[in-house]
Design a protein around this nucleic acid. Structure first.
Lengths: 206, 206, 206, 206
DNA sequence: GTTTAACCGAGACGGTACGTCGTGTCTTTCG
DNA sequence: CGAAAGACACGACGTACCGTCTCGGTTAAAC
């Protein structure tokens, strides 16, 4: 932390080697087949160098897969539906690879629900900022009367894609992203029941 | 299998004890903390009695948590939106309990993606029949021009609920089910962009 | 322990394989170079089977090297000196092999002094019975006025041989056993100072 | 080495702190429980300062325990037996402390037998000079016809004391040193079987 | 007075053994 | 043959230690 703490500093190449080896082995063997010893061997380092950085295997995997994930800036396509279409494609690109289901599942199982929630929230905030931008644009454009809760849209978009790909294992059928974008955009613009959901913009309890 | 096979028949109380002990221990220690030996000890039986019934720990957990789950008949509320509201509450009741995220995650991590998909499909088929019924009613009622793919609606509804509760850990905020039902119903009735997949990226004026 | 306790009984071939592999690897690599994993691999068993029997590596080595060591019956050569000569040769045969110094040293270092003393006492009792027999014969023969403490003779004989071979590393010079036997026999028969050491036959304090 | 080599000279307080910390921790935790890092921490120095002086942990321990041990000049008591009695007490003072068994054992286990022998020989030479002096005096005094091999007497005296205290863990019974001195002195003066090694196995009439 | 080279504390590094634990199979005795 | 008990082979886990190396910084002798 402190820039001038005593002792030999951590070798940044070791950090990178750990994360890289973790990603490679996750792709090769999956989450259940991943061992810390194999990561160390692949990275050409000792196990202690890993445990000096991450207390458990789960933390290491989380760092290797989630940390530093970048959400690109959304292009302004001119319509909410097309923006959401881009978002669906982006999310699919991030979590669509085979094996990601296992990784995310393993993290879900190994960390306590509260721990994973804490860890996820940081990551989720990035995506939500992007989503908020999309929703604000649509509001400014006049498509939406008021910006909905980005967390709500996030859960729907991410959840639907994850469930289809990794829970039901149904592959990335071509029209799925289209349907999803059309349905969510349409539903946000014309919610059934006509209830004006005013003021749920930031309600995220607990 | 055969009703009159030779030898001593399986003790049905053992079957029940295994499933019950599995559920209790899942609640106590979570999926990652669950061991077959602990289930056997809790059930007052031997490990062999478990492995005679289930080939792996995963099968046992699947049987204890998923198998036999009943999806109740949907009441005909008179509107798609209200039917989906009921569906959201039902799904929340089934997968909303704390720990379910860990169980599903663990299954996802331990089985290969394809295996979990196969196992899930049987379970999913039940829910999809229910969803199909809801969609057919809405079509007959005239709310929808044609019944959409139940698998699509299933992924959106289940995925959104699962993501909110177990991935982001945001609890069951009161309005969430309402918003979800309104948005999905509205989106199915009025998909943005007119008819599905007839060109996207083009601005549709608000 | 109990002949009819429940569960699968220990496999005696595993016991034997552990001890045999331990001895082989001690001879090959020495005490410091011995690993539990290597013993397991050599014996064709798992590590758990070893730790089910011995709590630590040291216990295993002790069992493999000390336990069940047999002290042969001493031939009645007709003189104390010749009997002690035989004893010196026997002890040399038991502890003279290269590597025994390391094994005994390792046990000395790893066990607490009190633990090794306890463990050793059981083994020492066997040798002491033999020594007591030799001394009793000499007394009956009239060579000695009263039988000295076997523990004293044991310490002198074993200690001298161990020190020469393993502490000073001076090899088994031919005449050493002769000199040792002559000196100890002579000293017991004619102790300098002429003090009649009456009644130190069994004094072994705490 | 060279008195005027360039660079900062070694800090002599560091030398002393290493040896002192080693001795303290040996007494506290024993040889097996001693770690180089703990010695460094206790001495308030870095590990590198230790390894700059000693190539291995064993060398450090050897230096801390054996090196510089002084064998005092033997008082001329006027009899071989009394001289050996003094020698026994002196050796007991040097190796009698609890923990010495573990230290010597550990060195025996970690160094190869030949290495420890080499290291020991330097130390042993000091004691042997003292023993040679005692034996020469006895010869001059007429107690012995010819001076025996000091190495032989060394092995017997040291070995017996070490075995009693550290192998059998029998404590320093009061009369033990007396018995040892009387027996060895008597045996050197009156070796059984007449002259050394002129046939054994033949009965020598009492 | 610089320069220079070895020193110093601190602690990260690669490597390796430890003892524990979990999985799924096998082997007993008993009912 | 089923069941309870528990031993079996295998192998990953996280901890600890060794001996080496790398920091930033200090200290005396050599220039």
């Amino acid at each position: 932390m402190s820039p001038n703490r005593p002792g030999r500093p951590r070798d940044e190449r070791v950090d990178a080697a750990i994360l890289q080896a973790t990603r490679v082995l996750l792709a090769e063997a999956g989450y259940a087949g991943l061992t810390v010893a194999a990561v160390a061997a692949r990275a050409g380092i000792g196990k202690a160098a890993i445990y000096r950085r991450y207390a458990t295997k789960q933390e290491m995997v989380f760092a290797a897969t989630m940390h530093g994930a970048q959400v690109p800036q959304p292009p302004d396509t001119g319509s909410l539906r097309a923006d959401l279409r881009w978002l669906a494609a982006t999310i699919t690109g991030m979590i669509g690879a085979p094996g990601v289901g296992g990784v995310l599942g393993g993290l879900l199982a190994d960390m306590e629900d509260e721990a994973v929630a804490t860890a996820m929230r940081g990551f989720a905030a990035l995506e939500r900022a992007t989503i908020a931008l999309i929703l604000d644009r649509a509001t400014a454009r006049g498509e939406l009367p008021a910006a909905p809760d980005p967390a709500f849209v996030h859960a729907v978009m991410m959840g639907a894609i994850f469930a289809r790909l990794h829970v039901f294992g149904e592959g990335d059928r071509e029209g799925f992203a289209d349907d999803l974008a059309s349905t969510v955009a349409g539903g946000l613009i014309h919610p059934a029941g006509g209830l004006p959901r005013q003021g749920d913009g930031t309600a995220t309890p607990g």
